[in-house]
Design a protein around this nucleic acid. Structure first.
Lengths: 213, 213
DNA sequence: TTTTAACCTGACCAAACGGTCAAGATAAAT
DNA sequence: ATTTATCTTGACCGTTTGGTCAGGTTAAAA
């Protein structure tokens, strides 16, 4: 390979690194989603990523570091996509937009939701700090908005945390319990049309349930 | 020990067996709830049950058999307590009773709910038969009832499966995500009063959401 | 009292586990 | 052309894993 074929400034090496890290992270996301931290094995991650196990440890020194990286990726993605709780518009539109965004995220990235579920069920050993700071701040600020809407008589006087938990639970159920839903749906994954109907139903029931329709 | 001190007909041996099986099952429920099937270890189960590891294998030949037994226990308990979907009364009372029963079960036996969550997230490898037969039959029969109520104009024309999934998700969230709720509640578990308020909120929002209040 | 059947467990095993390492391959810099 | 830094990987290591087993204890039956 001559100099003219090479990319400038070591771009090839960087590309290799990016490619392999991406392969390993994608495989790890699947394996951690299926088995949780303890149940996942680096051998299985390597197998799915189609790289030797030693290569997994070359890019990510330990299983815990790989797990933490995955958690960070999942969280940042969620902060971007699922925390678009714009409080400038009217309550019904805001809640509808938020619920739809969370439903879409469950559909598009179910692995992230499942990793989160594993992590919380086990007791949030790795993420309790993150939850008690970043996530709690975000949630509390939304509760303030909800309470303002309630005091302005724009919606029913529901307990805001219960409402938020209901939205968390219902939307994430379509990712975490997708296999159960699939079985109930005669062993077929929900079609796009079925999922759209489910999404609309969730929005309708919750909006009406808090007096916003 | 004389004959008069002994219990009749080998009752003592049977009692020993029952006692130890119970100890091991209780410990296994906790460990499987925390780590799922793959992540759980028989050594940890033995440690929590306070019996030698070899004794765990004396009463339950393999980890898989112990897990299946736990799943059966969890399911039968749920069938008893959480499937009391009496369709003779009026819709609002029936739904309220069902939601309250599921919330109470999440509060009283969170481990069972978490084991179920692990099992489904992983793809229901051990339980897909049970879900596609017993549970699906139960669910489909309740959907028939909901559809009848809808056609009789007693409640809104919601998609019944979406509604049932919402109830599953929201009620089980209080077991599966108890740790997250605890952190949001300033690192304190929900008090009985807080839980009662949450339960009432869930009932109110769903009943109103489907036109039953 | 003797026999029998069930219970108990420390010690052990092969397999799987997370992680290491030396030695080679590749490509960028000199 | 040579050096240097990064990438690659089979082989390996100490530990943990699910599971076994021989030999013991206990209590019911004969």
């Amino acid at each position: 390979m001559t100099a003219t074929h090479r990319q400038a400034n070591g771009a090839h090496k960087a590309a290799i690194r990016q490619e392999n890290e991406h392969l390993i992270l994608a495989a790890a996301e699947r394996v951690f989603a299926d088995y949780g931290f303890k149940g996942a094995t680096t051998a299985r991650i390597a197998e799915i990523a189609d790289v030797p196990k030693a290569n997994v440890h070359y890019y990510f020194s330990t299983k815990e570091m790989l797990y933490r990286r995955i958690m960070e990726d999942v969280c940042s993605h969620w902060l971007d996509a699922a925390m678009t709780f714009d409080n400038s518009a009217n309550p019904a539109e805001v809640l509808r937009g938020y619920i739809e965004a969370k439903m879409d995220l469950s559909r598009a990235r179910p692995h992230g939701s499942r990793i989160w579920a594993h992590e919380i069920i086990r007791g949030a050993k790795f993420s309790s700090d993150y939850i008690s700071t970043t996530v709690k701040s975000w949630l509390d600020s939304r509760v303030v908005v909800l309470n303002r809407w309630i005091s302005e008589g724009k919606m029913d006087a529901v307990e805001p945390y219960s409402l938020m938990y209901m939205i968390f639970a219902t939307t994430q159920h379509y990712a975490d319990f997708a296999r159960q839903i699939e079985i109930f749906n005669n062993d077929a994954p929900l079609s796009d049309a079925q999922f759209a109907e489910a999404k609309e139903n969730v929005v309708r029931i919750i909006l009406k349930g808090v007096g916003l329709s």
